[in-house]
């Protein structure tokens, strides 16, 4: 019993499927290893788990799957550090430790009745994908839905198949850009904040959800604000060092906020003054 109430103990999850998204990014579909069968993993769009690889370490990773399909826990991971590089070596059938879900969620309910502008940069599309799934499943509850996505190069574009599907829908506008490309690329070249001027925004009836590197989010917020959006209608997802995910280890502090339990998703108005302070 004690083992189940200890929030620092990872639960074993089996890797059911590995998808190689790009050269350094991959997606795991996980199922919970329980003696009494497979139970679902409920979470809210935007939440994260602490993922543990045996003997290597534990890191926070956002959930990238569909909240309406809790049978499989889905994480999209970019190999950038020692733990994620160890994860990249894992195969179907291997086990991963999971603690969570933790943190705040994208305002998908709050956005009902409004237009939605989703802006993702790089791996930032992964934490937003659950929100996109949710919104598309209840498409009639929203006005215009726009996805602006920026990647480093055409080869770094995540979830390409789904992006094509979404772009093919009549009820969703999808614009994609890359920072760098060879001459063979037929799409946009330029930074993702520059896409904001290409879409129609009704500032009084729009919720924006933004996830990517801090610099990218900074310029997106400026772009949205220039289009008349207030800071409390723009939501961003923040990232900091985390060792526990539950507000005990002190690492993810951001001014008064703990990114792990007060975030990672914040209305920009809540962190606006912190955002401009260097080395916070």
């Amino acid at each position: 019993m004690a083992a189940q109430t200890d929030p620092m103990l990872p639960r074993p999850f089996r890797i059911e499927k590995v998808t190689h998204e790009t050269a350094d990014t991959f997606t795991f579909e996980l199922s919970q290893q329980q003696t009494n069968g497979n139970s679902g993993f409920d979470f809210a769009c935007g939440q994260f788990n602490m993922l543990y690889t045996f003997g290597t370490g534990e890191i926070p990773v956002s959930i990238s799957g569909d909240p309406a399909r809790p049978q499989r826990l889905v994480h999209t991971i970019r190999a950038v550090g020692s733990v994620t590089r160890a994860m990249k070596k894992l195969k179907k059938g291997d086990t991963l430790g999971v603690r969570g879900p933790f943190g705040s969620a994208w305002p998908v309910q709050q956005a009902e009745g409004n237009d939605v502008v989703i802006i993702a940069g790089g791996i930032g599309l992964a934490p937003l994908r659950p929100a996109i799934y949710s919104i598309l499943q209840n498409r009639e509850k929203y006005g215009n839905v726009v996805l602006l996505y920026g990647a480093r190069t055409p080869q770094d574009i995540l979830f390409e198949k789904e992006l094509r599907e979404w772009r093919g829908r009549f009820d969703m506008q999808v614009l994609i850009t890359v920072d760098h490309a060879l001459g063979t690329w037929k799409g946009n070249i330029g930074v993702v904040p520059d896409l904001i001027k290409r879409v129609k925004i009704d500032p009084d009836n729009t919720i924006a959800m933004v996830c990517g590197p801090e610099i990218m989010m900074r310029f997106c917020v400026i772009g949205l604000h220039n289009r008349g959006m207030e800071h409390d209608t723009i939501f961003v997802s923040m990232e900091r060092n985390m060792k526990c995910g539950i507000g005990l280890c002190g690492h993810c502090q951001y001014g008064p906020e703990f990114i792990c339990k007060d975030g990672p998703v914040f209305p920009f108005s809540k962190i606006r003054t912190l955002f401009d302070i260097y080395e916070l």
């Binding site: 620092m8 543990y52 045996f54 003997g55 290597t56 370490g57 534990e58 060792k243 526990c244 005990l248 280890c249 002190g250 690492h251």
Partner: peptide
């Protein structure tokens, strides 16, 4: 002050791992 970090260690054969928490500092 309550900050802590964690350390992961394995035994020589790599069959058993431990996770330790220790005081950390900002």
């Amino acid at each position: 002050c309550f900050c802590s970090t964690v350390e992961d260690v394995t035994n020589l054969t790599g069959d058993t791992a431990e996770r330790w928490r220790r005081w950390d500092s900002c």
